[in-house]
Amino acid sequence: MQNEMVETIALYTAQIPGAKDSMNQESLESQDKTGKFVVDVSQPQLTAYWPSKDLHNGCAVVICPGGGYRGLSIDMEGHAIAKRLVKLGISAFVLKYRMPSYKTMDIPKWGPLQDLQQALHIVNSGAKEWHLDPLKIGVMGFSAGGHLASSAAVHYQRPVLPTIDSKLFKPAFQILIYPVISMDPQITHLGSRTLLLGENANSLDTEYFSNDTQINKNSPPAFILHANDDGHVSVENSLRYYHSLRESQVPVQLLLLPHGGHGFGMHHEYNWFESFKMWLKLNQLIN
C-alpha cells in the first residue's frame, strides 16, 4: 500500500510579483546517492505529499531545503524528509524557492521569503479543503533553508506581498536543522549572506535578517538541531537563536550533536528524527 500521494501545486497562478521576465534558469549541478542539487532556481514550485487517510492527522509542514541561497539539496533535505513526515500522518509540502538574483527578480533579498510566505498562505488557505488544522501548520528548514524558515517565523506580521493576509502565513511552529540564523559577519555563513544581501550589506538589512534579533513573545515554538563541529554554519547560529527564544519565553528544544559536520540530512548515526518525533508528540502536533 502506498503511504503517500504526491501532487504539484502552482505557487503563483499568474506572473510572479517582483520577478523579471526571464527563461527558466534552473540547472542540475550534481547528483549522488543522496539525490539532486539544483542551482539558479527561478521558477518556484510546491510539491505536496499527502499521507494515507488512515494516518492523516491534520498537521502540515512546509519544508525549505538548504543550499546556501545558491541552490537546493532538493532530495535529501526536501523530498526524503517529506516521505518520512507522511509516515507520521503529516501533510508535507516541499518548497522549491527562488534563488536571490538580479537576473530574475527586482529585489533579490525578498524573493525567497516571498515564496515561503506565499506557500504558507496557500497551505493555510487550503486548510479546510485539505482537512488541515490551522494551528498545526509549521515550517522546517535546513541550513540556508533554516534561515528562510526562521525568517518566516519572525517576520510573520510583515508580508512581502501586500496582497496576502498576514494571518494566513504565520507558522504554528518552526523546525530548524543546522540553520543559518544570523547575518553577523562573525558567525554567519558568508556565502548565504552575500547571495541574499549582496557584497556590501547595510546595517539595516543585516539586523532585519539576523533572525535572533527579531524574536518576540509571540514567535512560534521551535525545535533546533545542530552539530557542534559544523564547519560550514557555526553552531553559534543555533545557540543565539535558542537564547533569544528563551529570553522571550518561547518554548524551544535545542538538540546539539557532538559531531556530524554540516548537511547530513537524516544520514547521521544519531537518529535525531526520533527525538523530533517525540517533540511533535509532546507539543500535541501528532498523536
Rank of each mutant, 00 (worst) to 15 (best):
L46D: 10
L72P: 05
T104A: 11
F93E: 03
K217G: 04
W50K: 05
S275W: 07
A48H: 07
L255E: 15
N124V: 07
A172F: 00
L285R: 06
W50F: 13
V86R: 04
V154F: 00
H259M: 11
L46P: 08
S234Y: 02
S125L: 12
G111I: 02
G78L: 08
F173S: 08
Q25K: 13
W130D: 00
F209S: 04
L28N: 07
Q15W: 06
G78T: 11
G265M: 00
G141W: 05
N228R: 00
N202L: 13
S244C: 03
Y69T: 14
F169Y: 08
T194I: 04
L161D: 15
N218F: 13
V38I: 11
E274M: 01
R84F: 07
A119L: 03
N124A: 12
W279P: 00
Q31S: 15
G126S: 12
L225G: 11
Y270W: 07
A14T: 07
Y208H: 03
C59F: 06
T188W: 10
V233Q: 01
E236V: 13
A127F: 06
S219D: 02
M1I: 02
M99W: 08
Q31H: 13
K170D: 09
A119T: 08
S182Q: 03
Q43P: 11
P100I: 09
P108A: 07
W50S: 04
P220Y: 06
K33R: 09
V41P: 14
T206P: 11
R98I: 02
H155I: 02
I286E: 09
W50E: 05
A201G: 04
V250I: 03
K167V: 11
D40R: 09
E4R: 01
A172Y: 09
G265Q: 12
A48V: 09
